[in-house]
Simulated assay, not measured.
Amino acid sequence: MNYTLNQLQIFLKIVQTESVTKASEELHLTQPAVSIQLKNFQDQFDIPLTEVVGRKIYITDFGREIAEAAENIINQVYAINYKTLAYKGQLTGRLKISVVSTGKYVMPYFLTDFMKQHTGIELLMDVTNKNKVVESLENNEVDFALVSVLPTTLNIEQLDLLQNKLYLVGNAKATIPHEINTTDLFKELPLIFREKGSGTRQTMESFIERNNISVLKKMELTSNEAVKQALLADLGYSIMPLIGIRNELHNNELQIIPIKGLPITTTWRLIWLKGKKHSPVSTSFLTYLSKEKAQIIQDKFDWYERY
Rank of each mutant, 00 (worst) to 15 (best):
L124Y: 11
A69P: 05
V134I: 14
I73L: 11
F62M: 08
E138Y: 03
P108R: 00
K116W: 11
S136G: 05
M107L: 15
N139S: 08
V106R: 08
G93Q: 00
I74G: 01
K83Q: 13
L137T: 10
D126M: 07
N81S: 09
F62D: 08
Y82V: 03
F110L: 01
T112F: 08
T112D: 14
K104F: 13
A69H: 15
G93N: 02
P108F: 01
T112E: 14
Y87T: 12
D126W: 04
N81D: 10
S98M: 09
A79W: 06
F62W: 11
V100A: 11
N81C: 04
D113H: 08
I66R: 09
T92W: 03
L91M: 05
L85D: 07
I97N: 02
N72S: 14
T84P: 02
I121N: 10
N140C: 03
V106K: 05
A70L: 00
V133W: 01
I73P: 03
G63S: 02
N81K: 12
N75H: 13
V134M: 03
I66N: 09
M125R: 03
E71W: 02
G120T: 02
T102W: 13
T102E: 15
N139V: 06
K116S: 12
A79T: 14
N81F: 11
G93T: 00
K130C: 04
M115L: 15
